[in-house]
Design a protein around this nucleic acid. Structure first.
Length: 255
DNA sequence: ATGGTGGCGCGGCCA
């Protein structure tokens, strides 16, 4: 079982890269963020032709999340109880007996801003929902673009980013609160090289300099953590022409 | 370097 997540920054632009990547990697589940499409423009035919079922919660211009899977989705939910939000940032489904929660966490713009408060409030609500879901589904994965670096080792230049957006103490505490429910950052279940990231700014040659952050995560419940055999980040798509600013992240499991 | 690039969509927002 291979589970992956990729912020594609426009599925319209990135569809050929996504189809190529599905063909190469053959993940059982691929969570997408920032599709930037309404549901009526979702490329369902192309994805079906690649051998995948798909569900999508989209909107015009911004946000948008999708779940692609070899097995059809059950119990699909885009609006969680207690969080009224027009922004399409959450998509939950049961896939191959695993409860999957795909998140595009708000960026937050700047520490202390209105968008920052929205981010922290949003994380608090989703954490409450995950707590409920964990009680009902021992095999649970929460994955996506978290827009939070778990620790300084997930930051190319911790000094420059100290208490900046994506790296601040309140954001990291919110993420820790989610992990404290009984989830593991699957990437850290394994020994990893230094300076491995999942996002690089388009500006100032971020990828060329490996000036990145690790903000795309696959969190696993105890039942899945013990079955996890590897976790990695595939930087190859980030080096393609006209790439997303994020690379896909992966985790593999025994059946 | 207080900039830089990219997507959407056609001016400015968002990341």
């Amino acid at each position: 079982m291979k589970i992956a997540s990729w912020n594609v920054n426009s599925l319209k632009v990135r569809l050929p890269q996504v189809l190529d990547w599905l063909q190469q990697q053959q993940p059982d589940i691929l969570a997408l963020q920032e599709t930037k499409l309404t549901d009526e423009h979702f490329p369902a035919t192309e994805i079906q032709a690649a051998g995948y079922h798909a569900v999508h919660a989209g909107q015009k211009t911004y946000n948008g999340v999708a779940l692609l899977s070899k097995q059809p989705a059950q119990e699909v939910l885009a609006d969680i109880p207690g969080l009224e939000d027009a922004q399409r940032r959450i998509l939950c489904a049961t896939l191959a007996g695993i409860r999957v929660i795909n998140l595009y966490v708000p960026n937050g713009q700047e520490v202390g801003s209105e968008k920052f408060r929205y981010k922290l409030d949003w994380l608090q609500h989703i954490t409450r929902y995950i707590k409920q879901q964990l009680a009902a589904h021992p095999k649970l994965v929460v994955l996506g673009d978290f827009n939070v670096t778990p620790e300084d080792r997930d930051v190319h230049d911790p000094l420059a980013w100290h208490e900046q957006i994506l790296c601040s103490t309140p954001e990291r505490q919110a993420l820790q609160g989610m992990l404290a429910l009984g989830l593991n950052d699957s990437f850290r279940l394994f020994e990893q090289p230094d300076n491995i990231f999942s996002w690089w700014d388009y500006r100032a040659g971020g990828f060329r300099r490996n000036a990145g952050l690790r903000i795309d995560l696959i969190l696993t419940s105890a039942a899945l953590s013990s079955a996890c055999t590897s976790a990695s980040i595939d930087t190859a798509p980030r080096a393609l022409e006209r790439p997303s600013d994020h690379a896909p992240v992966l985790a593999e499991f025994t059946d």
